[in-house]
Amino acid sequence: MTTIFERPAFASLNQPDGMSDSEWAARCELAACYRVFDYLGWTELIYNHITLRLGDADPPAFLINPFGLHYSEVTPLNLVKVDAAGNILGHSDYPINPAGFTVHAALHNGLPGAHCVMHTHTTAGVAVACSAAGLRSDNFYSAQLQERVAYHDFEGVTVNPEEGPRLIRNIAGKRAVILRNHGLLSWGGSIPEAFTYLWTLNRACEIQLATSAMGPSLAIGPEITAKCARDALQFDPAFGAGRDVFDALVRMAFRRDSSM
């Protein structure tokens, strides 16, 4: 008997005729990721985005959420397929958000390893992004991110394509990104990998926000943070790069929302 823990996400939906197996699998995993974000409370009304490059698409294309739907409403069927210029490929009942396309397209087009890109406006993430000090090396999670965090200065609402090259330059290959005065961003070779970076970064911000309310914090020395970064095996593809954690959260999201 199939149990709730063995059931694939969105197993009740039928793969559309003519769609490749790889695109359908990508759609199901990305839609499940939107439900995970909803489960975690990482939502901002109908805003923010998680995008996924389609590896077999020719010309290059990626999937983005339909603009106007809450994360809890995203399904494999209503995800929007767009090309590198933001043109919708095929039919969609919804538009895409230009602010989301601009940033995500810059990473997908400018970083070969950016198969998945995630962006959030969590309270803790935005608070640290607004802090002049940025992320401090004073907690268990931030210590694991030593030399893994990039910063990009705020340039306004992200609708101007000319910001893209500056963003790529400031990222400099680092997969956890703090967008100053704005929020958090991560990217990776897969959804679980990008999620692992974002979860760790957001958790570090949550702890920093709580600690700041208690007065001065204890800094962690550079030797220890370097050791923590080396020992943070959740980022290592040899140890799954977050697959086990992500799959567990998909199961949790399914238990709450049987429409998956």
Rank of each mutant, 00 (worst) to 15 (best):
N48Y: 02
S72T: 12
P8I: 05
N109L: 11
Y94D: 02
S186E: 07
F195C: 07
Y71K: 10
P59Y: 11
E73F: 01
L77D: 09
A99G: 13
D56A: 15
G110A: 10
F67N: 10
L107C: 10
W42C: 07
T196I: 08
Y39Q: 07
C228D: 01
E44S: 14
F10C: 01
G215K: 04
S212E: 13
A26K: 08
P59H: 09
F235L: 07
S137H: 04
S137W: 05
A85H: 09
D38S: 13
A99M: 05
G68E: 05
I4H: 01
M214Y: 00
R251V: 15
N87K: 15
A84W: 09
A229R: 07
C33V: 07
P237M: 09
C33G: 12
S20F: 05
A57S: 14
M1C: 02
L167V: 11
N181C: 10
V117D: 04
S258T: 14
S212L: 06
S22G: 00
P237Q: 05
P112N: 11
L145S: 03
N139M: 06
A232Q: 02
C228G: 00
K227V: 02
F195E: 04
A241E: 08
N78M: 07
H49P: 04
L185P: 03
A248S: 13
F254K: 13
S131F: 07
M118E: 03
R169P: 03
H121L: 11
S12K: 06
V128F: 01
E23S: 05
V82F: 05
M118I: 15
V157D: 00
L145K: 01
A132I: 07
R251E: 09
V80M: 05
V103W: 00
N87D: 13
L145D: 01
E73A: 14
R169A: 15
D247C: 08
E163D: 14
V36T: 08
R7Q: 14
N202A: 11
D93W: 00
Y94L: 07
N139L: 04
L167E: 03
Q234C: 12
V149K: 04
A129N: 05
A114N: 09
N78G: 10
L233T: 14
A248W: 08
F140K: 01
T196A: 14
N48T: 15
A129K: 04
D38V: 08
L201D: 03
R256G: 00
S212C: 00
Y71I: 06
A172E: 13
M1P: 14
